[in-house]
Structures are given as C-alpha cells and as structure tokens.
C-alpha cells in the first residue's frame, strides 16, 4: 500500500515536467497554452529567460520530489518491527552545500536578468537633435479610460497633446520595424496595457505618465488587453493592435486625419491645458504630409 503513495508523489514531477515541456514546445493538446509567438527582439530575450528558468525549475522539481517519492518507496515499507530509524540530527557539511550552491545559482540569475529589465523598462530610446541627445518623442499618446482605449497620434508637429493630434478609439495601427514609443496616461482608475505578443505590460496609473517602447518585426493583427481590474466592464476593455508596413501606415493615418472632428479638438485642448508633459522639445516637421511623420534618426 505504501508503494501506491510513493508512485503518486513520483507522478508529480513526471506529469508536471512533461506537460510543461509540451506547453513550452507547442505539443498538442497544449499547443495554444503558454505564450504566443514573440513579435520582438526584446520579447525573445524574455522568452529565453522564461524558458531557461523553467528548465532549471524542472531540474530542481525532479531532484527534490523524486527524492521524496524514492524515500517513501524505500523507507515506507519496513516490515521488521524491531528496525529503528537512523538517529541523525544534522549534518553541517550538507547544510552548507545546499545553502551555498543554490545561493550561487540565485545570485547568477539575479544579475543575469538585469540587462533585459533595463532594456525593457529603463533605457528609454533617445534621439539626437542638433547634437543634443534627448528622449525620443512618443508617437502615440494612450489614454486609458473605463472601459476603452483612446489613441492620440502625434500629428504633423510630431508632438502628442497638440491640436493636430489624430484621434482613434480602440484601434492602434503601427508600422513594423521601427522603434515606437508610447506615452500612457489614465483618465480615471488604474489600467494596465498588455500585449502578450510583444511581452509588454505596464500599469497606467492616474496622476502619473508612463512610457513604453518596442520594435515589432512582423505584420500582424493582435490585441491589447487591460490587465488591471478597472470595474464591471474590465473584461471588455480591449483594443486591436495592427502592425502594418510603413506605406500602409502612412496611407491609414492620412485617412484618419480627414476624419478629425471639431468636438474632439475641444477635448484635446482641455487635456493639453494641463501642460504636464512634453518638457523636452521634440524635433519639428515642416510639412503636414504623413510621410514625414516618422522619427527615424
């Protein structure tokens, strides 16, 4: 009977690791689980970390839980009533070993991942204007609200929150192969901007301004999810995100400009009057034509 329990515990790492590998390498029936295919270089780095730490974890899981199952198998069925357990209270050498080795692994992990974090969250892209390096100006201002997304493309002037902004709701169209910076603010409660394919997530906190950046490499239609509870309609706070070629993007944004409405102009003026953002002056563009909207260095 004791062997049954041993097998039960041995099954934990076997099934656990097998299903994790199935999810990781997209084997049916878990092919759609785990994470979708990464769309960016930064996402690939995160994936490597994600999979790497999981493989390490699988190794440790196998080691520890197999030992537990084996201990149950070997020591759980002693028939001899006179047999006594071994009287061992401690083993200092063993304690030091299983403290120092994991410590080294953890410290390595801690330092190893810092670069990826910095790339994703700390090293905001810069541009050089007249020999002075400044932060790259955001291409789109994202305003999160209950329960939808507003996107304000920097208009001809290349600055968000000015009168020539192009406004689109619940649809974000962006060119591929370019480093894109988004500026994000909330109108009411906390929201969170999540694009699984880009391995990108950032909470949008009222009263604060956030910046995210990414560089997608493939034309694809994906979705933006809200991942911070924002009220009863939280579940339906989604927007479409379409990555298109530069040419398609230029054509699309031109269409949007013509749809610019006077009511909206008012709304922008109100937000712009807050004057909290854009302390850095980005490069200006002389012409209003869409082809010059880009921020290529």
């Amino acid at each position: 009977m004791n062997r049954v329990w041993s097998v039960l515990f041995l099954l934990v790492p076997v099934l656990g690791i097998a299903s994790t590998l199935m999810a990781m390498y997209g084997i049916a029936p878990l092919e759609s689980a785990w994470l979708p295919k990464s769309l960016s270089q930064a996402g690939d780095t995160i994936d490597q970390l994600f999979n790497g730490i999981h493989l390490l974890a699988a190794f440790i899981l196998a080691g520890t839980v197999f030992t537990i199952g084996w201990a149950l198998w070997r020591f759980g069925d002693r028939q001899d009533p006179n047999a006594k357990a071994r009287y061992i209270t401690h083993n200092t050498k063993l304690e030091i070993t299983w403290t120092v080795i994991p410590a080294m692994i953890l410290v390595f992990l801690a330092f190893f991942q810092m670069k990826s974090w910095a790339e994703n969250k700390m090293d905001r892209p810069t541009v050089t204007v007249n020999g002075v390096s400044t932060f790259k100006p955001p291409m789109v201002m994202v305003k999160a609200k209950r329960f939808g997304w507003e996107f304000y493309y920097a208009g001809a002037d290349g600055i968000v929150e000015t009168q020539d902004d192009v406004f689109v709701e619940n649809l974000l169209v962006l060119p591929v192969g370019e480093e894109i910076v988004l500026q994000m603010e909330s109108r009411d409660v906390i929201h969170s901007f999540y694009v699984p394919e880009l391995r990108l997530k950032q909470d949008i906190v009222p009263g604060m301004t956030q910046f995210v950046w990414f560089n997608a490499r493939e034309e694809k239609d994906i979705e933006i999810m809200c991942t911070e509870l924002c009220g009863w309609g939280h579940y339906m706070m989604k927007a479409d995100l379409n990555f298109v070629s530069r040419a398609q993007f230029d054509a699309w944004i031109k269409e949007q400009e013509s749809a610019y409405s006077p009511e909206f102009k008012n709304a922008v003026e109100t937000t712009a009057s807050r004057g909290e953002v854009n302390t850095v002056v980005p490069p200006r563009f002389s012409s209003a034509s869409g082809s010059q909207l880009g921020f290529k260095n």
């Binding site: 994470l35 999981h54 997530k201």
Partner: peptide
C-alpha cells in the same frame, strides 16, 4: 516545491512583465 519554484520564475522582473496579473 512547485509553489516555490514558480516563485523564482516570477521574481525575475523581465519575466514578470509577461506573467504579472495572469
């Protein structure tokens, strides 16, 4: 052991970007 190991996975901030609030 399983709970602790998944804790190590999510303690890595770049990984947490993806799996936070999921």
């Amino acid at each position: 052991v399983i709970g602790g190991l998944s804790g190590i996975v999510m303690s890595a901030p770049p990984v947490d970007i993806v799996i936070h609030d999921t």
